[in-house]
Write a protein that binds this DNA or RNA. Sequence first.
DNA 1: CGGATCGAC
DNA 2: CTATGTCGATCCG
Length: 830
Amino acid sequence: MHSTKEKNDNNKDDLLLRMGLNDNKAGMEGLDKEKINKIIMEATRGSKFYGNELKKEKQVNQRIENMMQQKAQITSQQLRKAQLQVDRFAMELEQSRDLNNTIVHIDMDAFYAAVEMRDNPELKDKPIAVGSMMMLSTSNYYARRFGVRAAMPGFIAKRLCPQLTIVPPNFDKYQAVSREVKEILADYDPNFMAMSLDEAYLNITKHLQERQNWPEDKRKYFIKTGNSLENGNPFQANSEEQNNPQILQNAIVFGTSAEEAVKEIRFRIEQKTTLTASAGIAPNTMLAKVCSDKNKPNGQYQILPNREAVMDFIKDLPIRKVSGIGKVTEKMLKALGIITCTELYQQRALLSLLFSETSWHHFLHISLGLGSTLLARDGDRKSMSVERTFSEMSKAEEQYSLCQELCSELAQDLQKEGLKGRTVTIKLKNVNFEVKTRASTVSSVVSTAEEIFAIAKDLLRTEIDADFPHPLRLRLMGVRLSSFPNEDKKQQQRSIIGFLQAGNQALSATGHMLEKTDKDQFLKPLEMSQKKSFFDKKRSERKWSQQDTFKCEAVDTQSLQTSDSFQVLKKMNENLETSENSNKSQIFTCPSCFREQGSISLEAFNKHVDACLDGPSINEDRKMFSCSHASSTEVNRKENVHHSFSLHEKQDYETHQKHSGINSVDCAELVETKGNPPKAESVGALSDKHSKEECAVFPRESFNTEQHYQNSFSTVLLEDMGSSQQESPQPYLPEVIITQALVCPICNLEQKTSDLTLFNMHVDICLNKGIIQELRKDSLANQPTKSTKSTDTSGQVQKTATKTKRPGMHSSSKKVKPNSPRHTLDIFFK
DNA sequence: CGGATCGAC
DNA sequence: CTATGTCGATCCG
């Protein structure tokens, strides 16, 4: 449809505008976006690859359509309810916000290409890429002006930029350089986490503390003006850095701030390797990563450790920039009108109904600017594999022998790490780019080439037979081994600890444990798998995941007018304080109708709340939510706990990278050179954010054959903070917008926010500061029994309709064991 | 557990 | 001619 297209284009432009990317710097050599797209299209159209891309695109579109149907069935009550639940969780997250760490993300600029240019002067001032005709790992900024990107096949890059020099990768060299860089990084955080050869996270919190007392000497570095830097002072061109560090003669003194420390790191890297790096400084890894992208190349950016700064940064941030949000997720969320983090936050209730628990939790973290503050050493390897692409192979005999070869290679790699596993998986990709995997698990571990091949061969044979009389026309084959046994001793220990922690988490569910809710910590259910069978586990997870936990939790300040909120909260707190055990008689005030419910059991109270919520006579004026994502209170600083892990670098990964052909797409590079004009060369930069954005091979239009979704959605993009959340079969009531200043009744300070949610959070925190700790201990002490609540729950409430299947909703791994009523209350009062 | 898919580098 | 390789995680059946 015509209008559809227009809308999309507008959205895109808008996005680009917000990202500050939509200017094509004219005058420089290079291509504009249209030309790039055209060339790529021509090179692509009609190829098998393209056909498969279209097919995949259709599947994604289908998923979106399903999602939209589900969305259409959601009632306003369900949504309201979800809102309460989600906001309760958001509140917990807010309280667990930890701003006390200084996390740095270091990212070498166009790493492989930069190394090649450094070591071969011929390549200076030329567009180059590292890789092969088949696939490029990275390109320099010059080449990027022509649309040449990482993850692009070389032959297409050549069409975009005929002068392009493609140099084959020298992984050994990159590794050596990487080691040099890591030596520097270790000075600032011995436990830093290397993500690849060119990227690492550091927690420099401790370093900064010590650094405060350092004499100038220890922060003083001499500028090397040796041969390698014949062009003069490497720092000279950088106006930004010129001010701060004191430059005296040939030395620079860096300050004691985080920003200065990171400048020092980058300075030392450049001095040592003649390569530049970019960096991001923030209170958590998620933000640091995004930051490092902001002033790339050769720049840095800091988000100051206060909530306001974080929220400000997050506000217009396109979700796609966040690690973990890929092409598909971006598209699905876009279908819901979500592009920025603010929009992601605004739709949180809906998302909780449409996505799995892990997914919407992740989304909520992102939209609140939360992330991991720990650099957890990554655990033991879970699988090892080999795969290879080749020109079409149709003879079964060749296929078997190739399979055998792969098994041998795999066995070799396995031997290096002394690994044995029980599951063998083969991967096949045919000439149409369709991928299949077939797995088989045996009862005892295998590791030799012969053992693995015996299993892989059977799997392969089955596939060949299945297609008989036709041969398999393959372009890729792979073999993987997984299901490694648990390392006995340690594993058992960990298993016990893990179990206890899981218990704690389920019980306390308060800030304490929640600080770990980042992606990294989310997972790790492995301990449980020993106790229960897989299916047992799944079953019990499902059982507890949803409905059960709902009732009393629905009580939430969010839904209340501020004054009422305070009253109710206070009252409930009093009740809690005085009543020893939950299920006895207590006095509750219904957050929906605001009537005291007298001395009733929790179940009864829950029933009442449900009735109130579900019933027709809902207090329609009730404030749902204001959307502002803006600043608010400075809150709840946690103690600075320093976790130290043993040094761990991802050597495995890198080693593998090394002796496999062209891999490791340098996806990290790219992007917006606009806001901050790059120093030397490299201007222009075509819009896309390459690291992501489907490695940009295809013009968006080419695959978007069915964009009509965009229009069929009733979702309304919010123009300002007060507008309704979204349209649904039963549209929402307009929200009440609080215009007057909000003054916290506890601390008496005016809160600079018009966002009720945030204000309520503040009040809650003020109110409960002291009490919470006690409640936590309390709840831990009183291990709740499972109580009658679940039956109670099943008795009424939703159940039907939309509860079908949303994209997954395990209460994955760890959490949410049965919540006792007592516990639920506990959660509520934080 | 098996298979497909996503995402990162 | 010519569109990677390796790993971890999630979700669904």
